[in-house]
Design a protein around this nucleic acid. Structure first.
Length: 467
RNA sequence: GGCGCGGUAGCCAAGUGGUAAGGCAAGGGUCUGCAAAACCCUUAUUCGUCGGUUCGAUCCCGACCCGCGCCUCCA
């Protein structure tokens, strides 16, 4: 069964493949860099990462663009309030965002596009829309007239045909002739406001046009896949479709894939509830990036995710168990031969893992396949029926698992004792034990523990790992 | 009100028209000089409520209740 994904456009789970050659042209909506990204944002960014990894595992090459929105009302307000330039203000949060992505082991998209690097192209696109009769001006701002675009509503499955101009209270600060028309270009409201001089006048782009323009610039008229959070379906993605298809006359994206929301302790995240967390907040409480990544990845992207501290602890323990298993596979002394039952179980786990991921990235089920095998293999290892010939396939399962989840390798800690030193200490302890100098042996063990190294006395000898 | 998602053990969560994956927690055990660590075992007559279809429904249909998202900036 090939990879299947849920397509918001058709509201069905459908087989996915790129239109041309083997390369997936994908565009994902990135952050608006007015503040540090929070874990709700990262739920979506982790989803993008899982999607990338499994697309590649499915044999596709990727051409992935993610935007950085570095001009919008909130950014301007904050930058002005702090007396900083737009660029200076957004550089800070852009860097923080990319750092956070690195910490969470998110793969870097092939292209990261900052909106303000493409203002002229946006202005040209708007000029083209004006020439095509899709727009109107009001106080030097330019609006898209959605009544000119017949397919409007096809993504969010809303019916706008009954809409009447003026029927709805206009909450926007700008004058629009129809409540759902949206700004393509905003003229500055006062002199301090950052603005660009372009072929269509002075001002700045609206939010939606940046994605349409940068997607076209990097990937062409039709994308294979466009992703984002569910909250972007309307109006953002609906508007992107309207602009892009009005510009090119071609379908904008073949697959639309959206990730569900994240709750914190069963409640929506908000600053007033005090449950609004950035990665930095979680790390300062002692949680590791791997735990956060695992928790965010372990719930399928189309299900709401309840982010809890118990879940974070749970993730940590689960990761330890997976790491222990891999270590055991690598270090166990095994008898020659191959046990066919174990081998069959390993194959079943491989197949189960792949089938689950192929089924709209069902990470929960994929994890189930891994843990099921883990237990069976541990039983076999305990019973001596896990043989040397079973080792490779079992380790390959862990490689497959980690190619998606990427949590087995512990994050670097700044100050750590070297592996050679650990080995030397272990040898010293073994000697002390042999001489029945248990006091000395315990002392060595405790010293290592203080340095974050845990010793395990197993029947195959001493194994160690970092805390 | 419209559109969309969801309600499964203490918590997180998968899943199927034929009788409930997996993880965490909890309890028990194995190993060990003692520990630690590790590993194993046990834990839902039951899947929001009420009807219906069916030989049989957690899974299909209908109604209802509850939670969440979007409809205005928002992952």
């Amino acid at each position: 069964m090939p990879l299947q994904l849920h397509n918001t456009l058709t509201q069905k789970v459908e087989p996915f493949q790129p239109l041309a050659d083997n390369t997936v042209k994908m565009y994902t909506c990135g952050p608006t860099v007015y503040d540090y990204a929070h874990i709700g944002n990262f739920r979506t960014f982790v989803f993008y990462d899982l999607l990338r990894r499994w697309l590649r595992a499915s044999g596709f090459a990727l051409n992935h663009v993610m935007n950085i929105t570095d001009v919008d009302d909130k950014i301007i307000r904050n930058a002005v309030a702090q007396g900083r330039s737009l660029r200076d203000y957004t550089d800070n949060f852009t860097k923080a965002f990319l750092d956070d992505c690195g910490t969470l082991r998110l793969e870097r998209p092939e292209h990261i596009a900052r909106a303000t690097d493409h203002i002229n192209e946006m202005a040209e696109a708007i000029a083209k829309l004006e020439a095509g009769g899709y727009t109107y001006r009001s106080d030097d701002s330019v609006y898209f007239r959605i009544s000119q675009f017949p397919g409007y509503g096809k993504l969010s499955h809303n019916d706008f045909s009954g809409m009447v101009a003026g029927a709805r209270v206009d909450v926007d600060e700008y004058e629009k002739s129809d409540a759902r028309d949206f700004a393509l270009w905003k003229a500055p409201k006062d002199k301090d406001e950052p603005a660009w001089d372009t072929c269509i006048g002075t001002g700045r782009p609206g939010w939606h046009i940046e994605c349409s323009v940068m997607a076209y610039q990097f990937l062409g008229a039709t994308l294979d896949l466009h992703a984002g959070g569910v909250d972007l379906i309307f109006p953002h993605h609906e508007n992107e479709i309207a602009q892009s298809e009005a510009l090119t006359g071609q379908p904008f994206a073949r697959f639309w894939v959206h990730s569900e929301f994240l709750l914190v302790e069963g409640q929506k995240m908000s600053k007033s509830l005090g449950n609004f967390y950035t990665l930095r907040d979680l790390f300062s409480r002692g949680f590791t990036p791997e735990s956060v990544r695992f928790l965010l990845a372990s719930v399928p992207y189309r299900k709401g995710l309840n982010f809890t501290f118990e879940g974070l602890h749970s993730a940590k323990t689960a990761i330890d168990r997976l790491r222990n298993f891999k270590l055991r596979l690598e270090t166990a002394k095994l008898a020659e031969g191959e046990n066919s039952e174990v081998q069959t179980a390993a194959e079943a786990a491989h197949t189960g893992f792949r089938a689950a991921m192929d089924d709209d990235l069902n990470t929960a089920e994929a994890l189930g396949a891994v843990f099921e095998f883990l237990r069976a293999a541990n039983v076999a290892l305990d019973g001596g029926t896990f043989l040397d010939g079973n080792r490779a396939r079992a380790l390959e399962l862990m490689v497959l698992f980690d190619s998606v989840f990427e949590i087995l390798k512990p994050s670097e800690t700044a100050d750590g004792i070297s592996a050679d030193d650990v080995e030397a200490q272990i040898a010293a302890r073994a000697a002390a034990k042999k001489a029945r100098d248990f006091a000395r042996a315990d002392q060595i063990r405790n010293e290592l523990l203080e340095k974050g190294v845990i010793l395990e006395d197993t029947k195959d000898g001493v194994r160690w790992k970092r805390k």
